[in-house]
Amino acid sequence: MNLINLPKTLTPIASIIAILIFCADVSGQDDLLSELQQSKKPEKEYTSASFKGTRVVNGHSIETKRSGELEFIISHRFGRINSGAYNLWGLDDAFIRIGLEYGVTDKLGIGVGRSSFNKIFDGYLKYKVLQQSSGPGSFPFTLTAFVSTNIQTVPKADTDPSIDFADRVTGNYQLLVARKINPQLTIQISPTLVHINTVDGSVADNDQFALGISGRQKITKSVSLNAEYFLRLNRHENTPYYNSLGLGIDIETGGHVFQLIFSNSQGVIERTLVTETAGQFFDGDIHFGFNITRTFQLKK
């Protein structure tokens, strides 16, 4: 009987422990639910719904559309609020971007759009490289890589034949890093590179780096307040442009997200947003605008 080899003095203690285990088991028998809870293995869960939309304010969020989802997005930006009653506080001068984004997989999104501001066509790819998760093997943030290209079609080729196609092209590269800190609050940082093929060297560089800082705070289940700032890291000393600041309110109803926006930027794509923001927010050069999105499930 050397099954359990304990020093003699410990044996009474061991039997007390055994009795305790036994008692615990008897009560556990009555409580099936806690027995179940104990048998449950913790699982890794991916964090979802860090942002309501694919845009925080003007710039992209880490969110992509899921496989088979198509998003139709209309971004409308009015003129400056401080342009006076004659312009109906900016409502007379509106720019619009019409775009589509499709989820090829749950991680890979592809999008196209056309902005009336400088008549720019854009196309982009978004890929969720890493996903925030909880449970075993958890990961603290989501990383989405974003690449886009813009083709500015102003001025028309006929009117200025000296401009080559290459002069019209811009490439934008972003790493979107976000952490959903709690169900209400998400913070994102977005290191950004905008490469403009052809610039006026006296006021701008070809490669412009910026750091986007943005976040959202939900105030109800369907409404959140958003903010976004792009800090240009190597701004040209003679630049006539300002850093972009945007404030927004997201309202979500079923398949729609409405985003009401106040920003000193009138463009909504990275080039115009990060490097060509002409307004000074605190002087009142604020553009009111909205994004309206509708998501369609095309494939199951």
């Binding site: 009987m1 099954l3 359990i4 044996t11 009474p12 061991a14 039997s15 055994a18 009795i19 285990i21 036994f22 088991d25 008897v26 028998q29």
Partner: peptide, 19 residues
């Protein structure tokens, strides 16, 4: 004492299977 211990453990395992 060891026999008591073993008895306890046997009872415990009977409990676990049961119905």
């Amino acid at each position: 004492m060891r026999i008591i211990l073993i008895l306890f453990f046997t009872t415990v395992s009977l409990n676990v299977t049961g119905q």
